[in-house]
Amino acid sequence: MTEFLQQLVNGLSLGAIYALIALGYTMVYGVLRFINFAHSDVFMVGAFAGLYLAPLAPAGSILGGLLVVIGAMLAAGLLGVTIERLAYRPLRGAPTLNVLITAIGVSCLLQSAGQLVFGAAPRSFPVIFPARALSVGGLDFSSNQVVVLVVAISLVVGLRLIVFRTRMGAALRAVSQNPRAARLMGIDNDVVIRFTFALGSALAGAGGVLYAVNYPSIDPLMGVLPGLKAFVAAILGGIGSIPGAALGGLLLGLVETFVGGSQYSTYKDAIAFALLILFLLFRPAGLLGKTRVEKV
């Protein structure tokens, strides 16, 4: 039982990071209907921004850690907006395939440029939050896991408030439901799309730092697998649905952690893709998504 609860905590903190990345995928898919492959590398850049910002903030304190997270969010948000402006906006209205290929190109660019700028070797991530081993009722976990969960949950709640309580959030929902009607209502779609990229990328940036806090070495290719898995999480939850992305992330984190702790641990990386294929075949709308009927 202790073992089970232990894994539960581990799974939740991994899942929280997947959820943060998944939100960016789902939001961009909501407004532009394409998989932003470069999102996983924005996550990576977020982690590296954290690495470079860490020495500037007081080490090992809550405040210092939060400052690093916020700094990484700003950097990632800025990167997301830049990518959208330079690579995706010129392709508005182009076939999905072209946008998809461009996204893959941007992803490769960030990875290879990352290897040049940050170096290809893994770098160890400094301690930014107070690190203590906690023990509650026979459960051992690190304070970092708690920090990850608390920060992730606050960000998701914050995102929900933005989407449902602000004018910009309402515009975002309008554009994702019907871009043309939104434009007729006087909404500037480009502004909303830029905002979506800023928000989603900032969350990925936070995810990058939190990931680095828990798995203390980072490298320019670190985004690939978590990014792909987070997209799978977005599909599991129902692409386009914000609570779905959060749910899918947690679910995937849990499943992976439990498989990782079992005798099948070497198959861990294949789980996400097996789930993806099963879901796309049997429940393409995901857990919380709605099915659309194609009009002929």
Binding site: F34, I35, T96, L97, L100, L228, F231, V232, I235, T266, Y267, D269, A270, A272, F273, A274, L276, I277, L280, L281, P284
Partner: peptide, 26 residues
């Protein structure tokens, strides 16, 4: 599976298949 999927979903599933093959071989 390609029969039911198109565009970027299909791309993702084929990517997933490639990765699954890799993990199985490993």
């Amino acid at each position: 599976p390609s029969l039911r999927l198109r565009g970027d979903y299909l791309a993702l599933v084929t990517l997933g298949f490639g990765e699954i093959i890799r993990v199985l071989l490993q």
